[in-house]
């Protein structure tokens, strides 16, 4: 039973992720992303990490993908894209791809993956209290850094979206 469920959710996650990259239609891609997230949430539930599963659904499936769809509809980028990247974009993406390959290579060659403890995710991600405790003690610095990054992004949006010369938005 558990194996069957795991296989189903894993397949859903991976197939969804492939669908995001492979789909030309952006709305289809966003829906594939949604499927992938639902599969991931199912995997979390199987690890007894209920809190993580529902937070994932709430934040990513409930809000982030909906925002993606909002942006897709607002910009209306239906199937008009051609492969017309600038040279710089091609160069940087190639470099990034190389780095990814190198990282994967070293990981396969020399990296040691300790046997994953299946209870670890359940222990921390099952209920609110242990999760929050970890968040405010062990992982306080990453949380703060992430918060700061988001703040920077938000300020950037405010600066970019302000019309030049206009102090106050006209109603």
């Amino acid at each position: 039973m558990a194996h069957v469920l795991f296989n189903c959710f894993a397949l859903l996650t991976i197939a969804g992720a492939v669908g995001v990259v492979a789909n030309k239609n952006t709305v289809n891609a966003a829906m594939c992303f949604l499927l992938s997230l639902v599969g991931l949430a199912g995997l979390f539930v199987q690890l007894d990490a209920y809190l993580l599963a529902f937070v994932l659904l709430l934040v990513y499936a409930g809000a982030v993908v909906a925002l993606f769809l909002f942006i897709i509809m607002l910009l209306d980028t239906q199937g008009r894209q051609k492969w017309d990247f600038s040279k710089l974009a091609v160069f940087t993406s190639l470099v990034a791809f190389g780095l990814l390959l190198a990282g994967l290579g070293t990981f396969v060659k020399r990296g040691q993956l300790e046997a994953p403890n299946p209870n670890a995710a359940g222990g921390v991600g099952a209920a609110l209290k242990p999760y929050a405790y970890q968040l405010f003690t062990t992982y306080l610095l990453p949380v703060e850094v992430m918060g700061f990054l988001l703040l920077v992004a938000m300020l950037g949006v405010i600066v970019l979206s302000r019309k030049a010369g206009a102090g106050e938005d006209a109603p």
């Binding site: 809190l51 529902f54 709430l58 099952a126």
Partner: peptide, 25 residues
Amino acid sequence: NVDVGLLAVFAVSSLGVYSLILAGW
């Protein structure tokens, strides 16, 4: 009976927006 109770309600009901978006689109 799940311990995350309200969070589950919020998480699942937030998926309801997709029906409106997809229907519109």
